[in-house]
Structure formats: C-alpha cells, structure tokens
Amino acid sequence: MFEARLVQSSILKKVLEAIKELLNEATFDCSDSGIQLQAMDNSHVSLVSLNLRSDGFDKYRCDRNLSMGINLASMSKIMKCAGNDDVLTMKAQDNADLVTFMFESQNQEKVMDYEMKLMNLDQEHLGIPETDYSCVIKLPSQEFARIVRDLSQFGESVVISCTKEGIKFSAGGDIGNANIKLAQTSNVDKDEDAVTIEMQEPVSLTFACRYLNSFAKATPLSPQVQLSMSADVPLVVEYKIGDIGHIRYYLAPKIED
C-alpha cells in the first residue's frame, strides 16, 4: 500500500509544470524515504532529478517499494483538475497498474477521485558522480528565468562565466551580442534577493538556451536557484521545494569543435 498526502497540492502541480516540457514519461520511485524521479530527455542532453522526502508529506505510507511509470501529459491533465488549495492524496495498491489522485476541498465538501493507468517503462538509472564544483552561484530564480529568456533572443547558446567579481551571461547571433553581468550582492533586505558566489576556480561554459528555458519552468517552486559549475562537466541547476525536497536539472555543456 502506498499513500501520500499533501495539504498543498499546488506543490505537485508546480513540479509537473517543471518537468513536463523535458520529459514525456517518467518513473516515480516510491519508497519509505519518499518519492524519487530520475530521467533524461529523449536527446540525452539533460536530466531531471526530483526528490520529495517522506517527512515533507502530511501523511506518508509506503509498505513496499513501488515504481510508477507515468505519462506526464496524462498526469498533468489530472493535476489541472485540482484547485491550488485542495488537499492531495496519491494512493496505489502494491503491484497496482493504477494510481489514484484524490483531491479534497479545504472544507471537505467536494471530493474528487481520478484514477490513472500506469505504464511499464524501461528504467535507465544514471550514476552521477559526486563532484566538488568550482563555482556555486545562488541567485533569485526570477532573475535567472528573465536572463535566460532575454538572451534566448540572441542565439541558441548562452555562455555562463563565473569569476570572483561576478557571473556573466553572454549570447550572440545575427542581430548582435548581449552580455548580462551580476555582481555578488553586498546587502539585501531579503535573503531571496541575494546573489552569492562561492568560487574555487573561474569557469566558463556554453549551454543551449532551450534547456535553460525549460529548467526555468521550475521558478514558481523556489525564490532562489543554485547553479553549480566545473570545467567540462554538466551544469547543475537546483531549485529547493519548500521543506519537502528539491528538483535538480543536469545539462551537458556544448563543446568547442
């Protein structure tokens, strides 16, 4: 028996918005410790890694490990039926081929049950090596989304360079060049407005704008985003999900020919 209750169903709605552009389907691995999802996009350029800890749910029970293969477009249709303030409960029997999403209004006067068929998906787990990153940058997530959106107008790629002085995002193409520099903030009223840089060594890497824009769909999940970079390894873009977990995106850099 698997049962997970979330008073704020909006969290799962936002998670789905944050992954459905990159992935058509994915396996939700449910265990005692929580719900995990790890999947690459079709082109194997990016990877989504989602972790929702069991202690972050309002109620959580998972008697046996369960892998739920889910079509994300179908799940998205169901999640759109939930009001933001509805209470969500996901339920599945052991070895089930169905998962039930139950939405209850706050006053419990309306109860909705949606059953969704599960899929058998080939599991391809990637071993992600532990990496000490040369640069770890934290910045407001809306700022990151804005920068990526703005630079996408100039070209397909964005160069992210990090030095002690700050971070520079650059793009260039037919219409010209664009550079956006962010310095580390010295004092801000709210932590979520801060730009912080932890740098061991300067790094400069090139990434496809298309994927960065897809990652930015996670912006509603967290006021801050963390970028971790080292030379010649994938970028990690991490959004915390309240007290329940995180979503991490990995993106392979573009390589100079």
Partner: peptide, 14 residues
C-alpha cells in the same frame, strides 16, 4: 562552432 555534449559521456548508465 560548438557541438552539444550528451550526458552519457559524463554519467554512467546502470
């Protein structure tokens, strides 16, 4: 010019 790298060359598939 640049070419897009793939994650397979960085991470091991198990």
């Amino acid at each position: 010019t640049t070419t897009q790298g793939r994650l397979d060359s960085f991470f091991k598939i198990s």
